[in-house]
Simulated assay, not measured.
Amino acid sequence: MVKIKGVKIMHHKGTALLTTKRLVLRKFKIEDAENMYHNWASDPEVTRYLTWPAHSSVEVTKMILNEWIIQDHDQQYMWAIALKDNDEVIGNISVVKIEEDIKCVHIGYCLSRKWWHQGITTEAFAAVIQFLFEEVQVNRIEAHHDVLNPNSGKVMAKCGLQYEGTLRQTGINQAGLADMAVYALLAQDYPKAV
């Protein structure tokens, strides 16, 4: 890792408990498997623009959740998006890549189709952005989306990320090769951007 003058290290804290008006963002537990499977992981409409296919059974979901739980550490950021009033897990948001040398994190998220277009992902992402800038002290938060999925870009823009360009055929997902729109927010532009 190259040390760059003036760039301090990140202060990793792992998946901290975060709350918003309607949500609790927390670590996954194995008991979330049924909600995860039925609410989004088995839905091919939800996974269409993701890198993994819809789960074929709740057993697959349990196996994946178990791996996430076992691999938990202070540089893993993987939140279950749960409803505050009943703890039903309806999606997830996570840091899918960390570039330590430039203090950059890449965010990915997915949400149950039942909860689309209600501001849930925006609310969750805004809480994660605040945590990552203020607590972890990242310098850049980045997210990409398949250009065929413009609603994901709307979430990014609502959270203050700026569109930086489109990389042609740089991604692959369940729909095939994808042109990916890149959005980012820098620490210097936060919090005035949100």
Rank of each mutant, 00 (worst) to 15 (best):
I90N: 06
I90H: 02
I90D: 10
I90Q: 06
I90F: 04
N92F: 02
N92E: 10
N92C: 14
N92I: 02
I93Y: 04
I93C: 02
I93A: 05
S94W: 13
V95K: 08
V95C: 10
V96D: 11
V96K: 14
K97N: 11
K97V: 10
I98G: 02
I98W: 05
I98F: 11
I98D: 10
I98P: 09
I98M: 09
I98V: 14
I98A: 08
E99D: 13
E99R: 11
E99T: 13
E100F: 06
D101P: 07
D101L: 08
I102L: 12
I102V: 15
I102Y: 14
I102H: 11
K103D: 12
C104M: 12
C104I: 03
C104E: 15
V105L: 14
V105H: 08
V105M: 15
H106A: 14
H106E: 15
H106R: 15
I107T: 07
I107N: 05
I107W: 03
I107G: 10
G108D: 05
Y109K: 02
C110P: 00
C110V: 07
C110Y: 01
L111G: 09
L111A: 03
S112G: 13
S112P: 11
R113I: 07
R113C: 05
R113A: 15
K114Q: 13
K114L: 10
W116R: 10
W116V: 11
W116Q: 07
H117M: 12
H117E: 13
H117Q: 14
H117A: 13
Q118P: 11
Q118C: 12
Q118M: 15
Q118V: 03
G119L: 13
G119N: 13
G119C: 09
G119P: 10
G119A: 08
I120H: 12
I120D: 07
T121V: 15
T121Y: 07
T122L: 12
T122K: 10
E123H: 07
E123G: 06
E123T: 06
E123I: 05
A124M: 07
A124C: 09
A124H: 10
F125D: 00
F125E: 07
A126M: 10
A126P: 03
A126E: 11
A127G: 08
A127L: 09
A127Y: 09
A127H: 01
A127Q: 08
V128T: 04
V128D: 00
V128N: 04
V128A: 08
V128I: 03
V128W: 00
I129L: 03
F131T: 03
F131D: 12
F131E: 02
L132N: 07
L132A: 09
F133V: 06
F133E: 09
F133A: 06
E135D: 13
E135W: 08
E135L: 01
E135C: 06
V136G: 07
V136K: 03
V136Y: 03
Q137L: 14
Q137S: 10
Q137V: 07
V138W: 11
V138T: 09
V138K: 05
V138R: 07
V138C: 02
N139C: 05
N139E: 14
N139K: 03
R140G: 06
R140A: 05
R140K: 13
R140Y: 03
I141V: 05
I141N: 00
I141Y: 01
I141R: 08
E142D: 01
E142H: 02
A143N: 01
A143Q: 02
A143K: 02
A143D: 01
H144V: 04
H144D: 05
H144W: 14
H144N: 06
D146N: 05
D146T: 01
D146Q: 00
D146G: 01
